[in-house]
Simulated scan of single mutants.
Amino acid sequence: MNTADRLVAALRAAGIATGDAQARVGDVQLTGRYCVVWPVLERAGENTIGDPNTDRIIDMQITSVGPSRKAADQVAEAAGAVALGVLEPPDGQTWMCAPEYVVGNPTMREPPSDPARPDTAMWARADVYRYYLTPA
């Protein structure tokens, strides 16, 4: 399992409805309160001169969604607690240090996807977390 898989599994284990890079889980469309995990960036970090690219720095975005600003913020806070908590490391890796919160955007109203139902607008907030990995 990679970092995204571990984060998705931890969010779901915490009881948060979670999509893996899409707002769907199998054939079920996520509605109400949920979050979606997006792998943002992975880059090689520093290591020894003999094996310089074995460390990894991975940024993961969690977009939290709810029917109101308050609901989206509650999902974001719950997801953030999981993202910054203790996660199993990806296969063949171990954590170099604790994850960190990198950046986020304000909770904003998303326009409805169905123009015939303007009351179905949702609120969303995206937060990015950084993970530091080294070979196990």
Rank of each mutant, 00 (worst) to 15 (best):
G26D: 02
G50Q: 14
V86L: 13
I49F: 14
G50I: 15
V8G: 00
A136W: 10
C97G: 10
M108T: 11
Y132F: 15
V82A: 06
V103H: 06
E88L: 12
G85K: 02
A98M: 08
I57H: 11
R117M: 08
A79G: 05
V82L: 05
W95T: 05
K70L: 14
A14P: 07
V28L: 10
A78D: 12
A76L: 04
A98H: 09
M60Y: 00
M96N: 07
A124P: 11
L133A: 06
Q29W: 12
R69T: 07
R43P: 10
I49W: 15
T120Q: 14
T120I: 09
D5Q: 10
R56A: 11
A44W: 11
R12H: 04
W95H: 07
D127N: 13
D5I: 11
I57R: 14
N105V: 04
P106H: 00
L133H: 04
S68M: 02
P115A: 04
Y101C: 00
G32D: 05
N47S: 15
A78L: 09
V40F: 00
T120L: 11
A79T: 05
V65L: 07
A4Y: 05
I49Q: 14
V40E: 14
V8W: 01
E100T: 11
L7A: 01
L87Q: 00
N47Y: 14
I49R: 15
P52W: 05
D20M: 02
V36F: 08
T134P: 02
